[in-house]
Computed example of a mutant assay.
Amino acid sequence: MSITGLFPIDKWNFKSQSILNNLPAAEYEQLCAHMMEQEYKKGEILFREGTVPQGIFFIKRGKVKKYQVDRDGKEQIFYVANSGELIGYHAILTNERYPDSAAVLEDSTIACIPKEDFLEALERSTVLPQRLLRTLSHEFTVLTNSISILAQRSVRERLAIALIVLREKFKDEAPPGKDIVINISRKDLANIVGTGDENVTRFLTEFKTAGILDTHGRKIMIRDVGKLIALSGYNSR
């Protein structure tokens, strides 16, 4: 089922895929001249908050969580980046250290573009600066929306929203006619929602009883995304 017109999914995606799409050939070649591709296992760290950036990361396959860690060591996941997205360029653009951390959620193939190549391409390109500006503006809107949701919505509503967004993230991996499977740990899901693991487990059981979803281990299959959208509260606000 498509959620177009039912849920504002654009408010939850950074759209950084558009940065490299149809970039002039010469500019793309310059940007990727020294790009190094690497395989990452689930849970591996790409970069940590407070470290000096050495490059930007292009997710060729897989998913990456962006998060911050509070004083008690608890993660707050504020974004899940998908295949085709770029991450890690904010710190380079501002000439600062990474403001957050990034780790892979599943086995992934990720390429690193050296900082120097990225900055040189940015300086010479006639297209890249405008694309980055548009993307950064949209990302600010997404993050503002996320902060608002955490402050104003109940845990049940936040979980419903997180599941809707994750369903879209995992949609492309589902074979035609097959279930969309959200493969994520309860801990990571709780860190996206901003609650404890036990709350997530309790509400997932409630959603399962209501026929909204099924679970198999860490895997979640949404059966009725319409009901999930209704639970999110978007239709009533």
Score class of each variant (00 low, 15 high):
Leu159Ser: 05
Lys74Asn: 13
His34Thr: 11
Ile9Glu: 03
Asn82Lys: 13
Ser236Trp: 09
Ile147Pro: 05
Gly226Leu: 09
Ser137Ile: 14
Ile184Asn: 00
Thr195Gly: 02
Val52Ala: 14
Ser146Val: 07
Tyr67Ala: 00
Asn13Met: 09
Arg71Met: 11
Leu93His: 03
Leu128Pro: 08
Val64Asn: 04
Asp72Cys: 02
His138Tyr: 05
Ala25Lys: 05
Asp179Thr: 04
Leu46Asp: 05
Leu133Gly: 02
Arg156Pro: 04
Ala111Ile: 04
Thr51Trp: 02
Glu27Ser: 07
Lys187Tyr: 08
Gly5Asn: 11
Cys32Asn: 10
Leu136Lys: 03
Ser83Ala: 14
Gly194Pro: 00
Leu119Lys: 11
Leu136Arg: 09
Ile212Trp: 04
Leu204Asp: 06
Phe58Cys: 13
Arg97Asn: 12
Ala33Gln: 05
Thr126Lys: 13
Ile56Leu: 10
Glu157Val: 07
Ile113Ala: 07
Phe140Met: 13
Gly233Phe: 02
Pro129Glu: 01
Ala190Arg: 00
Asp72Ala: 08
Val80Glu: 01
Leu213His: 06
Thr126Gly: 09
Ala26Ile: 12
Ala121Phe: 04
Leu122Met: 05
Ile92Asn: 03
Arg202Lys: 07
Ile192Gly: 00
Pro53Cys: 08
Asp172His: 08
Glu44Ser: 09
Asn21Cys: 14
Ser18Leu: 09
Ser148Leu: 14
Met221Ala: 10
Ile9Gln: 10
Arg223Ile: 10
Asn199Ala: 15
His216Lys: 10
Val200Asn: 01
Asn183Glu: 12
Asp179Lys: 14
Glu75Asn: 15
Phe203Tyr: 08
Lys171Ile: 12
Pro99Phe: 02
Lys227Ala: 12
Ser101Ile: 11
Ile92Cys: 09
Glu85Lys: 00
Ile92His: 05
Val52Gln: 15
Asp100Cys: 07
Arg71Leu: 15
Ser108Met: 06
Leu20Glu: 01
Leu46Thr: 09
Leu159Pro: 06
Glu27Arg: 03
Glu168Phe: 05
Thr141Ala: 15
His90Arg: 12
Met1Gly: 05
Lys65Met: 12
Val142Ala: 04
Ala26Glu: 07
Ile222Phe: 11
Ser185Asp: 01
